[in-house]
Amino acid sequence: MKSNPLGRTGLSVSELCLGTMTWGTQTPERDAHAQMDMALERGIDFVDTAEMYPVNPVAAETIGRTEEVIGTWNAANPGRRGDYVLATKHSGEGMMHARGGAPITSATIPQAIEGSLRRLQTDCIDLYQFHWPNRGSYMFRQNWRYDPSGQNRADTIAHMEDTLEALQRQVDKGNIRHFGLSNETAWGATMWATLAHARGWPRVASIQNEYSLLCRMFDTDLAEVAVNEDVGLLAFSPLAAGLLTGKYQDGAVPDGSRMTFNETLGGRKTARAFHAVAAYLELARDHGLDPVHMALAWAAGRPFMTSVIFGATTLAQLDHALGAADLVLSPVVLEEIDALHRAHPMPY
C-alpha cells in the first residue's frame, strides 16, 4: 500500500487509515481485534481513535472503551506496537463525559494523555490531536450559519501558546511524539503552525477534517495551507457516513447500520444528498468500479491527502473497503467526478 509523509515529522503512514469509532459498541472487542490483524496484514500501518469513542451514541458508560479495545490488542500482541502509527484525540469543550466538558487547556492535557496511555496500554502516542477548536468549528453542518465575529484573537493566540507549551512538556516526557488538529480552519491551522515554528514547540503535522465526494470544503483555502505548510489532510467520513455505498438509497435502512442509531447521519441525510449519491453510483457502474473503492481511491488521490480514515463495523466491510488500496482512477473518471461535483455541490 502506498505511504505518504506525515507532515514534517519524518514518519510515513499508509494512504488508508483504520478508523475505530464503532469499536466497543457496534463492533465487539473480538471483531475489532480481528480488524487490527487484517488491516496490518493488508498494509495499513495507521490507526486513528479518540478518547470519546465509541460513538452512535456517545455515552458516559462507554466513553474511552474504544481506546481500551485497542489497548487489549496491544497487550495481547507484545512487540507489535511498533508496526503501526497510533493517533488519538483530546476532547474539547462541551463533551460532558470527558472532564466535565472542560475546554482544552494546559491543565487538561496531562490528564487526558495519561488516561489515553493507560487505556491504550502503550507508553507513547504517535500523533496526539485536538478533536475540535475551543473557539468552535464550522464542521458538522455548522458552516451554513458560521459566524466567527465573536472570537477574540488575543485569547485564541494565548490559548494556542499555552497548549503548545504543554504539548512540548509531553513530548519531552516521551508521552507523545507529534501533534495534529481536527475540525480546524485555514486560519487556525496556519496560526498553530506559525506559533509552533516561532517558539520551537510541536509543529502541527496534520488536520483531520471531513472530506468526501459529498463534502469538499477542504478543496480551496485548506488545500493551500496543507500544501504550503505540510499539514496534510486526514480525511474522515470519506464514504459520507455510508451514503456513498448506496446502502441507504430508496429509503433503505439496513439493520445495525449507522442510520438505525443516528437517523439524520449527523445532518447528512438530505434529498439532495441522495440525488448526488445516485449520480456517483451511476458513474461507478458505467466504469465498472465498486462505488466504495471509487470513493476511497478518489480521496486518496487528492494532492493534499495524507491518509483516508475509514471505519468498518464488520470484518467483511473492512475486507471490502481494502479493495480500494492502490486503485488509481483514470483521467476520464476524474473528469466525470468533477462534472458531478459541479452539478451537485454541497448536497448537505
Rank of each mutant, 00 (worst) to 15 (best):
37 D>S: 03
325 A>T: 12
65 R>S: 04
341 H>A: 13
221 D>K: 01
128 Y>R: 06
186 A>G: 15
178 H>N: 00
9 T>D: 06
333 V>E: 13
23 W>P: 08
69 V>K: 03
305 M>G: 10
337 I>F: 11
5 P>A: 13
190 T>E: 13
226 A>E: 01
96 M>I: 14
323 G>I: 11
146 Y>P: 11
205 A>M: 03
115 G>N: 12
228 N>I: 00
3 S>W: 11
329 L>A: 07
134 N>I: 01
49 T>W: 02
124 C>L: 00
333 V>Q: 13
30 R>I: 02
220 T>G: 06
43 G>F: 00
168 Q>A: 05
327 L>N: 11
279 A>G: 15
220 T>S: 05
333 V>K: 13
10 G>K: 13
326 D>A: 10
330 S>C: 04
203 R>K: 07
129 Q>K: 07
263 E>Q: 12
41 E>M: 03
329 L>G: 07
329 L>R: 09
282 E>Q: 09
97 H>N: 02
260 T>S: 14
303 P>S: 12
26 Q>C: 08
2 K>E: 13
327 L>G: 12
298 W>N: 04
60 A>P: 10
152 N>Y: 11
18 L>N: 04
73 W>A: 09
283 L>Q: 15
67 E>S: 05
236 F>C: 05
246 G>N: 03
130 F>I: 03
343 A>R: 06
159 H>L: 09
324 A>N: 15
172 D>T: 15
46 F>S: 05
154 A>W: 07
40 L>Y: 08
58 V>P: 11
44 I>F: 00
330 S>I: 04
46 F>Y: 06
227 V>D: 01
318 L>G: 07
193 A>P: 03
176 I>H: 09
25 T>S: 15
289 L>M: 07
342 R>K: 14
97 H>L: 01
39 A>P: 00
317 Q>Y: 08
170 Q>Y: 05
308 V>T: 10
249 Q>D: 05
224 E>A: 09
191 M>Y: 06
275 H>P: 10
267 G>H: 08
93 E>L: 05
281 L>W: 04
278 A>F: 12
179 F>Q: 07
138 Y>R: 04
20 T>W: 14
22 T>N: 14
159 H>E: 14
293 H>A: 14
150 G>P: 07
158 A>M: 09
44 I>H: 00
72 T>V: 07
179 F>N: 08
229 E>Q: 04
35 Q>D: 02
131 H>E: 00
168 Q>P: 02
248 Y>C: 09
243 L>T: 04
310 F>C: 15
264 T>F: 15
333 V>I: 13
137 S>Q: 05
347 P>C: 09
308 V>Q: 05
